[in-house]
C-alpha cells in the first residue's frame, strides 16, 4: 500500500515538478500543494493522463488558516499565580460581533481550497491543496469545466468562506439564508452570528435584530505538549542521541 502511494507521489513530482510546492505522503494519503497559477492545467492533466486518471472530484473544502494554532488556554507555562484560567476570548466561539478578530501564529496565506480526487479506474486518491494568493480577495480558477461536481462545492466555498472562483457559471450563495451578510465559516465570524430573527408583535412581522445571546464555550481549546502526546518514536530517537 505504501509503495503504491510512494509511486504515485514520485510520478506526481516527476510530472508536475515546478507546479508543486509540496508533496507529502502521510497516514496513507498523498497530499500535494499546488501553485494557484498552475491549477487548471494540472487538474486537466490529473484527470486525463494515464498514470493519474482522477475522473472524480469527491470533495472540495475551503479552509481559513487565520486562527491556526490559536488556543483559549495556555496550559504550557505557569506563573507564580499558577496556570492561566482558560478564559482568553480569542477564538470564533468566544467573541461577539465587532470585537477584535483572532490573529493566529500562522504565517503565510490565509485561505486555502482543498480538493479530494478519486480515480475509479486506478483505485487511488489524491488531495490537492491550493492557497489563494490574496488574503483580501481570495480568488482561484474554477474547475467546473474539468469536474462538473465542482459547481455546488465551489458555491459552498464561496458562501462560507468568500473564496471567489473565476469562470464559475453561477456563483451564488447556497447554504445561507437569502440576504445573508458575511461568510460564516471564516475564523473572524463569531459562532453566535451577527443577527437573530424574531416575530415582532407591534410591527406584526418577522424582524432581524442584533444578537442578544451571550457566546459561551464550556471547554477551552488547548494544545498540549506534555508527555501524553510525545510520539514514541521521537522519544526513543532522543534517548538514543
Amino acid at each position: 500500500m505504501n509503495d503504491r502511494l510512494q509511486t504515485l507521489a514520485d510520478s506526481l513530482e516527476h510530472r508536475f515538478g515546478n507546479a508543486l510546492s509540496n508533496c507529502v505522503v502521510a497516514r496513507g494519503e498523498v497530499t500535494i500543494t499546488l501553485d494557484a497559477a498552475h491549477l487548471l492545467e494540472t487538474c486537466t492533466a490529473l484527470r486525463d493522463e494515464d498514470g493519474f486518471k482522477f475522473e472524480m472530484l469527491v470533495d472540495l473544502a475551503g479552509v481559513d488558516y487565520q486562527a491556526y494554532g490559536v488556543t483559549e488556554w495556555n496550559a504550557d507555562e505557569a506563573t507564580a499565580e499558577g496556570f492561566s484560567r482558560g478564559v482568553q476570548e480569542s477564538t470564533s466561539g468566544r467573541f461577539r460581533f465587532a470585537d477584535a478578530p483572532v490573529v493566529g501564529t500562522h504565517t503565510g496565506l490565509r485561505f486555502a481550497v482543498v480538493y479530494h480526487l478519486l480515480s475509479i479506474t486506478r483505485n487511488q486518491r489524491l488531495r490537492v491543496k491550493i492557497f489563494c494568493e490574496d488574503d483580501d480577495l481570495p480568488l482561484l480558477d474554477s474547475v467546473v469545466g474539468i469536474w462538473s461536481s465542482a459547481n455546488w462545492y465551489e458555491r459552498e466555498a464561496f458562501d462560507l468562506f468568500g473564496i471567489i472562483f473565476k469562470g464559475h457559471p453561477d456563483l451564488r450563495r447556497i447554504l445561507t439564508d437569502y440576504g445573508f451578510i458575511g461568510h460564516p465559516f471564516r475564523k473572524d465570524f463569531p459562532l453566535v452570528g451577527h443577527v437573530e430573527m424574531r416575530y415582532d408583535p407591534e410591527q406584526g412581522r418577522v424582524i432581524y435584530q442584533p444578537v442578544t445571546i451571550e457566546p459561551r464555550v464550556l471547554v477551552p481549546k488547548t494544545i498540549r505538549h506534555d508527555h501524553r502526546y510525545i510520539d514514541d518514536t521521537v522519544e526513543s530517537e532522543a534517548s538514543d542521541a
Partner: peptide
C-alpha cells in the same frame, strides 16, 4: 461516500471539519 476531513492544529478541538 460519506467523507470526513479533519484538519487538526494539535488541539483538543478540530481546526476544520469538512463533511462530504
Amino acid at each position: 461516500e460519506f467523507g470526513t476531513y479533519i484538519i487538526s492544529d494539535g488541539a483538543n478541538k478540530p481546526y476544520r471539519l469538512k463533511i462530504r
